[in-house]
Amino acid sequence: MTRNAIFWYDELPSPIGLLRLVADDHGLREIWFEHGRHQKSPQPGWRRAAEPLAQARQQLEEYFAGARQQFELSLHPHGTPFQQEVWWELARIPYGTTISYGELARRIGQPLAMRAVGAANGRNPLPIVLPCHRVIGSNGSLTGFGGGLPTKRYLLSMESRVAHGDLFSAERFRH
């Protein structure tokens, strides 16, 4: 992480567990799951503050309530140019739909780079906002996800219900 940069973090209770949000002066940098493969604790020098992350919190709460399908946030994920290309393409996957890793590789103009695309997808620092959960195996199977497969299944199911007009009470998903 950049020297002398200020990083803020806050935690958001959600239907999939506690989410840790991290931002810098340029925007939202990371979202970490409470449980999952890549857990992360606040780093020395990070400041806990709700205000710098208020817009991200609000939009994520709206997403989980079924009231938001696209995020309108300043984002600042850190990664290689290839990872960035994959991550920005994730944002173009429509809400409530899925694509395969092969399709994602084709969309970035590198149809033979499925494994590299999968690796970049797995390094996505902004899950949910850059919806890596919408990428599945070519046979339709749910493949790895940093928040765990039950979380991926939940997100896809929730989006499918909302996208197809299946009404549900947002209250039943709150802690």
Rank of each mutant, 00 (worst) to 15 (best):
I128G: 01
S14N: 06
G147T: 02
L28K: 09
T2F: 08
P131G: 11
A56Q: 00
R68I: 04
V22L: 01
G146W: 03
F33S: 03
Q70T: 14
E103S: 05
W32S: 11
T151S: 01
Q110F: 07
L130W: 08
Y154F: 15
P127K: 07
I16A: 05
A50G: 14
H164E: 14
F173T: 02
R29W: 00
I99S: 02
A120P: 00
S100P: 00
P81N: 03
E89A: 14
G144E: 08
H175L: 12
L60S: 00
Y154V: 04
L112S: 10
G66Y: 06
L142V: 06
G165V: 08
D166R: 12
S138R: 09
A5N: 07
K40L: 14
K40G: 15
E62I: 01
Q55F: 00
Q55I: 15
D166I: 14
L19D: 00
G109E: 04
V129L: 00
I136G: 04
A5I: 13
S41C: 07
H133N: 06
G122E: 03
M114G: 03
A113D: 09
W32P: 00
D166V: 15
D166Q: 15
A49S: 14
L73Q: 05
G27H: 09
H164F: 08
H78Q: 14
M1H: 01
A116S: 14
H164L: 10
L142I: 12
I6C: 03
E51T: 14
P77G: 01
R48G: 02
E62F: 07
P42W: 07
A23D: 06
H35W: 12
H35K: 15
W88A: 15
H164V: 06
E171D: 13
Y154E: 02
I31S: 02
L104H: 00
A5S: 13
D166L: 15
G96P: 07
P42E: 06
G109M: 04
